[in-house]
Design a protein around this nucleic acid. Structure first.
Lengths: 153, 153
DNA sequence: TATTGTTATACTCTATAACTATA
DNA sequence: TATAGTTATAGAGTATAACAATA
């Protein structure tokens, strides 16, 4: 048995994060996909649905369903867009803002717990390295998607 | 805009890896879930389906569907279990073995590409740190799952 | 004409529950 | 009685396609 590759560790972490989030939200009106919509609105402010669709790289149809669910649960509201009567802006309700505030705090707490597993002297180096890996991976995925899109057209 | 947390970077990497895998397999008989089944068999050898279900933390019913698809695609075969006539062992076909051999090589290649984004002097430290973070996260998720299970019972 | 978002429909993945065959 | 796996059914998430309202 040899040491797992860094990539294997990253895949393990990906699986654990997704599993933990799914478990955390089970029995509630939330889910990883719905949280992704809330993060987009949290970061971008009131947005049109097609903007969310582009940010998450899914079709507008998928956003219709996710926003329907979030609106029914009381976390977001569809409001008229004064500049375009076809569109509506999706905004966080006060419940939505409170949820995201709590979630940001929980993220910071989990981040601190995980960083505590790394020797203090190594932390800056590790943060830089993971950022570099994430950026490199984003480039690769973007190139692969472009190549696939070119093939298909 | 402050520097993203390490956790945010890990979530970004998780999303990119899943997205890239989904794109890579689109239009084929494969998918991330089906690949997870193949990885389990690749590592454990011929296994009963309930063993795969436990390894992936899904219900046996889900495995029935995934193995059905993989068998139809020619990557695995269900063979009788000589020790238990209720069960069948799932084994890789020669196509399945060839696929996993290719995939292991592709993983090693991607791993090397990503590690190239990290200064050579930092690599060992980063590998150790990510392993420590993965182990810590696995503990946390396991504890949370146990706590949730205890609550429910 | 192009864009925004919806309804209609279908597929994958997953869960629970009821059932068969075997242990 | 318990276990291995299946069928039946349901729900979430996503895709394509056709359509409405507006730009």
């Amino acid at each position: 048995m040899h040491t797992p590759l860094l990539l294997d560790r990253l895949l393990q972490i990906a699986d654990l994060l997704h599993r933990d989030m799914s478990r955390e939200y089970e029995g509630t009106e939330l889910s990883p996909s719905r949280m992704a919509v809330l993060w987009t609105i949290h970061h971008a402010g009131p947005v049109q649905q097609h903007t969310i669709a582009e940010a998450l790289d899914v079709t507008p149809r998928a956003i219709t369903g996710l926003v329907d669910a979030l609106e029914a649960a009381g976390y977001v509201e569809r409001v008229p867009d004064p500049a375009d009567r076809r569109a509506r802006r999706v905004v966080l309700t006060s419940d939505g803002v409170a949820l995201m505030t709590r979630t940001v705090q929980e993220h910071a707490g989990l981040n601190a717990t995980l960083m505590a597993a790394v020797p203090e002297a190594d932390r800056e180096c590790v943060e830089m390295a993971i950022a570099a890996i994430a950026d490199r991976l984003a480039e690769l995925v973007s190139e692969a998607a472009t190549a696939a899109g070119t093939d298909a057209s």
